[in-house]
Design a protein around this nucleic acid. Sequence first.
DNA 1: AATTTCTTGTTAACATTTTAACAATATATG
DNA 2: CATATATTGTTAAAATGTTAACAAGAAATT
Lengths: 207, 207
Amino acid sequence: MEKNLPPATVERLSNYRRKLKGINTEETAYIHSHQLAHLMRINPAHIRRDLMLINFSGDIHKGYNIENLIAKIGENIDCIRKQKLAFIGIGDLGRALASEFKNKDSKLEIVAAFRLEENLNDESVDFKCYPISKIKQVLKKEEIDIIVLTLTKINLKEVLKNIVDSGVKGILNFTSAHLDVPDEIYVENYDMIGKLEKLSYFTSCKD
Amino acid sequence: MEKNLPPATVERLSNYRRKLKGINTEETAYIHSHQLAHLMRINPAHIRRDLMLINFSGDIHKGYNIENLIAKIGENIDCIRKQKLAFIGIGDLGRALASEFKNKDSKLEIVAAFRLEENLNDESVDFKCYPISKIKQVLKKEEIDIIVLTLTKINLKEVLKNIVDSGVKGILNFTSAHLDVPDEIYVENYDMIGKLEKLSYFTSCKD
DNA sequence: AATTTCTTGTTAACATTTTAACAATATATG
DNA sequence: CATATATTGTTAAAATGTTAACAAGAAATT
């Protein structure tokens, strides 16, 4: 299978699936494009177009079979083997994610978090917390695939070197630091200040 | 002044400014489009186009005057009065943001954070931490403009009611919950799981 | 003084994403 | 049985975002 789906579609498919999994299919086995669109707050045409791209057909009158759709989305966007996540820096966001992943037979799994503090194991999560100093050995040992970076008060250069050496394939970057890594590593930057200033621009009355 | 800048441009302008503020203008007072583009890892044409949209002219040989550009960006994207932020749920991300805002004479200011725990004042930050139960009175009293939501284990419906009633204008939502608020409130959703699954899709070898 | 080189400002082309439109078609209804 | 209705699948159009191209013009160089 080739990776020829547009990025925006991949993201939406993931979101559709999460929403669909929340539906009790014993009560309602089928859903219409406009119903799902309403739940997602997007345009119905979007749904139909996305499902067309993964070749999923619905019943012209009953709509889309929810269980089949969930499976079909998986076939298209999930990787074969489980991918392992690690957080560098973590708070409510990481805990929230962890509980999302739990019991969801997701192909993504949080296996470690690194913090500044020593010995900060949190019994509310089921992944291990390590001090940032142990990053090198843990990344190697656990074969981490994806890093979520939220911590700025670290020796970034050294940490990045360890990340690159360990074979990490992608980084979701929430810090405003620029990550100087080889092109093979897929970096998705999320600049919170930029988003906030945009929000501020569109919410403030300028006169 | 009208809000006729494209959203993507507003976001980039904010990012340019943050990068420019990190430059020592005593050493280098001017910057070329390709230099800034290199720092931002984007296309030089993008820079020139964005600056065209805010009517900022550079010197054909020296480039763009950094201080003037910072000021001009402010004129275009900053609101007149300071806008107040509050976090619902907070960890490393919030602390990182707080340190970004500090001493940056930004028009955005974090004034409060709400947590599940009682009495959890953090001496490393300069905003106050409240238990989530106090949200109603604090939002009103502090006149919060923007909410950053990262906490899921709350009574969302009630919290949202308080947010709407208090006159909040925008919400940056990191949870996967759907926020049912009036259209007047600008909601920017960031679905981390969606982003992670997209990352996973583009980093995994599917064969 | 002429030529080369470089950079801005601007337009046009291109790419991607989103939305609209509508034919095809199956069910329900009169 | 004919008509109305509703929904998918698909194509076309619109909107948005990005990149390329290049004229205009200033400094540096020959």
